[in-house]
Design a protein around this nucleic acid. Structure first.
Length: 275
DNA sequence: TCACAGCGGGGATTTATCGC
DNA sequence: GCGATAAATCCCCGCTGTGA
């Protein structure tokens, strides 16, 4: 049994990290669980106190926040965390590479006839703060932005949600005529237009919306193609980037308008090699 | 002295359960 | 169905120990 005040051992860290990810997966699935019982079971296994285990849960949330991954609601990320936790999380992710991909990535975002509250304020303009090297290593191995970008089903469901939201908003604004003209361009014509949805504001002005969806949090990075970035520069009057986040749990969104580099930090993510 | 990890305690709030 | 009560959840405050 561990002594209060001593550093957590690798075994203890592995236990609590595994338990945390198990609870997180259940939360994302909408499955019920009682945190106090999980805490009590960990107290039995580790000899740590309730407060110590809860504190460690908040430390794990802090690491996941920095990684752009979702965390358990209720375990508010602490400001700091110890290095042993990073290693523990890396070990867990290495052993469970399919985490949040596949069945777990199913979402509960069904039925959205009304223009319910979906859009909130965008996060403040970025202040670039580099990740500590151990976290950079994890991001390279398990990039949550890349994982979400490769999840085509997730992207499609995000577009569907925004498509219905645009229609409902226009109907609520008394513009059923415009709501009928909203087009899901990427679904009907395929990718390549530089945006996913052609919609309108209540005054009839065009809104060309590119939808970016992640399971992660409000600040989880996302990928933008060169075509999309170029289109945003070409049509700053109409281009809108709809950023849907926390999609598996409680989908929320914010909207970015060009110039995009004033709202987000754009960094080249791949290179085109030509002869 | 200071920063930080680790921790205990507890108040406020929400949710579940029970008895009427 | 409703109010009372218990349990669970959320998260804040402030303390100790340690190492630089």
């Amino acid at each position: 049994m561990a002594e209060a005040g001593s550093d957590w051992t690798e075994g203890e860290v592995d236990l609590i990290v595994a338990d945390y990810f198990d609870m997180l997966a259940m939360e994302l699935r909408g499955a019920p669980f009682v945190k106090a019982r999980r805490n009590a079971a960990l107290q039995e296994l580790t000899g740590r106190s309730r407060g110590a285990i809860e504190f460690k849960h908040q430390n794990i949330s802090a690491v996941l926040l920095r990684l752009g991954m979702p965390w358990i609601a209720g375990y508010k990320p602490m400001a700091n965390f110890q290095g042993a936790l990073i290693s523990g999380i890396e070990r867990y992710l290495t052993a469970h590479p399919a985490l949040f991909v596949g069945p777990e990535a199913k979402t509960r975002a069904n039925g959205f006839a009304e223009a319910e509250t979906l859009f909130f304020e965008a996060p403040p303009a970025p202040s670039f703060e580099p990740l500590p090297p151990p976290l950079q290593r994890i991001v390279r191995k398990f990039d949550p932005a890349l994982r979400d970008a490769r999840n085509r089903a997730l992207g499609r469901r995000g577009e569907e949600r925004i498509f219905h939201h645009e229609q409902a908003s226009l109907r609520d604004a008394g513009r059923a005529d415009l709501a009928r003209k909203v087009r899901w361009v990427s679904e009907e014509d395929g990718d390549g237009a530089g945006y996913d949805i052609r919609s309108f504001d209540p005054a009839g002005r065009e809104r060309l919306i590119e939808v970016k969806t992640t399971v992660g949090t409000v600040t989880t990075p996302f990928f933008l193609s060169e075509n999309e970035r170029g289109f945003a520069e070409e049509r700053p009057d109409a281009f809108r980037l709809a950023r849907l986040y926390d999609f598996a749990r409680a989908p929320r969104a914010f909207e970015l308008t060009p110039p995009l580099d004033r709202c987000v930090m754009l960094r080249p993510a791949n290179w085109r090699a030509e002869f």
